[in-house]
């Protein structure tokens, strides 16, 4: 019998069982794999699939609220209550026509708005927090009576809400899920037919 055959024979577990050292190593590997799997699933996947988005201008809602700028100065609604998009640069320019020259973070952001957008008459590419996917039709009109924070982040508590977007689905962390819509619709006895919200 050759040396190789002798070694192989000595590693064969007797009675169908591994040797003690080998079994412990296997268990250790399995445990490590389990931990790695759990970490990848719970922590890695969300980080891998989401990207943090930054608004082109670090707009402070509270700074504007303190100066009694009403929400509807910038967030328009159509005549029938429908959402009317983001404010035109002209709306911003009505207050921010000239740079402040200040050194605070807010003042620097205001100057950035003037220099990059107001003077260039360029629309600010604002990022929508609660952006819904394109196959969803959300009419603001019937929902206004529930108040904006029912669906949107409450800007009285979160001045700069974190905005993340899923790389796979394109959904954002503030995008409303269908379950949430359905729950509310059922509570209000509103329609839950597909065509009520989807196209």
């Amino acid at each position: 019998m050759s040396v190789t055959h002798e070694r192989a024979a000595s590693e064969i577990p007797s009675g169908g069982r591994f040797r003690r050292g080998s079994r412990e190593l296997w268990a250790l590997c399995a445990a490590l794999g389990l931990i790695a799997g759990l970490a990848a699933g719970w922590l890695g996947y969300p980080r891998l699939t989401s990207v943090v988005l930054t608004q082109p201008i670090r707009f402070s809602h509270s700074a504007h609220a303190k100066q009694d700028v009403a929400c509807r100065t910038c967030h328009f609604e159509g005549p029938d209550g429908t959402f009317n998009g983001f404010p035109d640069i002209g709306v911003c320019a009505s207050c921010h026509a000239e740079p402040t020259g200040g050194r605070s973070e807010d003042e620097k952001e205001a100057d950035k708005l003037v220099v990059e957008y107001v003077r260039g008459k360029k629309a600010v590419p604002w990022l929508s927090l609660a952006r819904q996917p394109d196959h969803v039709l959300f009419d603001h009109g019937p929902h206004l009576r529930f108040g904006c924070p029912a669906c949107h982040p409450d800007m009285s508590h979160q001045d700069y809400p974190e905005l993340r977007q899923n790389r796979v689905s394109g959904y954002r962390n503030w995008t409303m899920s269908m379950e949430r819509c359905q729950t509310c619709h059922r509570q209000q006895s509103a329609s839950v037919d597909c065509v009520s919200c989807h196209r």
């Binding site: 389990l34 790695a36 799997g37 996917p133 796979v168 689905s169």
Partner: peptide
Amino acid sequence: LGISAGLAAGLALSPASWRLARDLTRQ
């Protein structure tokens, strides 16, 4: 194989597979 089995079990016990399925559906 032990590591792979552990990894698979760990992933199965995490919501990653369900989230991936959900994201692909949404996409």
